[in-house]
Design a protein around this nucleic acid. Sequence first.
DNA 1: CGCTGTTTCGATAACCTATAGAAAGTCTTG
DNA 2: CAAGACTTTCTATAGGTTATCGAAACAGCG
Lengths: 242, 242
Amino acid sequence: MESAKTAGATAGRPRLSGSADGSPRQEIIREATALFVAKGYAETTMSEIARSAGLRQSSVYYWFARKEHILQALLEENRTSLQVAQTLEPAPGPASARLYAVLHADAVQLCASPLDFYEFERVARSQPQNFGPFFEDYGELHRLVTSIIRQGLDSGELRDVDPEAAATAALSLNEGLQRHYRQPLPGLRTYTADDVSTLSADTTLASLLLTPDGLPGVRPEAAALATGPTGGLARVNSPAES
Amino acid sequence: MESAKTAGATAGRPRLSGSADGSPRQEIIREATALFVAKGYAETTMSEIARSAGLRQSSVYYWFARKEHILQALLEENRTSLQVAQTLEPAPGPASARLYAVLHADAVQLCASPLDFYEFERVARSQPQNFGPFFEDYGELHRLVTSIIRQGLDSGELRDVDPEAAATAALSLNEGLQRHYRQPLPGLRTYTADDVSTLSADTTLASLLLTPDGLPGVRPEAAALATGPTGGLARVNSPAES
DNA sequence: CGCTGTTTCGATAACCTATAGAAAGTCTTG
DNA sequence: CAAGACTTTCTATAGGTTATCGAAACAGCG
């Protein structure tokens, strides 16, 4: 037991519907992602995922022991805003611009993610042991944002607020607005991903700066930071067991 | 058919487990609410609701044709912040204080509601025809908040922003923070309902006022509005069919 | 050619929502 | 006060879901 289960496609019993293109694992993730985007996680069944990937329902369980594991694998391929925060927190320059850049990048990522943040959170909470990294990443992002706000406080750029509460509010706004981008409520205006990201970062900075007049100056600085020192992504590609 | 189905408890086949205390419908709502609060909507089964209410699983369907109808009935008993907004939107006095009062009241209600806002929204979206009132109420709240912001713009109390986008951001912040109150993430500080409500209203007002210095003055004005002209609640009590 | 390891399949258990129709009372009415 | 109508609950079951189990079908190797 506990064998290779690598990306090969030749061994094993052949599928009824032709054979796989590439790694079955990646293929399942790809098809599941498309279905999650279209219908949401809870409303997507393992049978549908199997049909899209070209296997039978029970065969998917050879690659992912539980439905949540597919979501987990999907999550691990989508983390960039944390890297932006890790880069910018210790960077020099005004804290307000770095804060703007981090919040904007986070909002963009939330909008671009294949799944609603709250769906991730819901599933993560029901399987805490499998989603440790999710909570750790969130905690670290919160810590970094708190730190940047504290820097802005010390340098006199920002109003006197509780840095930790302000970070919670800033991230909450990102999460709440992400939802309005992703699922526009009937009768309300629809926004692009950049609309909500700018709206969120603008709002948070306006609430934290000593005077909102500073906002127009912060935006170009933040844009320079965002285009400049951006790191690449690390990708994971290994079959999951158990 | 299409008969009374009123609150009476005497007619009909008797229950295996004694008979009902009051209106079966209200009893089901009460027990279901407790379970939803404890475990969330999706994780609560009709069998559990039935057991708590003292009937068999299928008997619940006599009172509620679908599981979502219980949620819908529950929702109709919990709307107060919209009334606050309807009262304060046309009221005289500074717009900033009225805005603060409305946002704070909305956040308090979101925290006090038995169910997560996003669970309501999720179910509402899957059953749009049954949850028309939910979307209408939300749309009206958004419209009222937009109007108050526009008043503040006209009176020169608030910065020059897009009122509709600002309203979306304000409500998103309420919704996002509600989540942090309701389901604190591991490793982060926990907040009381009043903490998050004040944090939310503070943040939004700080982002909209011409200068954040005005914030300490707005809070007491808003508090006076909140305690003063508050209307009572309208309650609904009729059995649901279809 | 038989053995081992890998991958897929079919069957099935356990649980869920929802429906159908019978059953067990009360209420009304002649 | 008996017969039927009405109300409410029950049992039984259909059909869909996640997840498990063991057999089946292939490749590669001695």
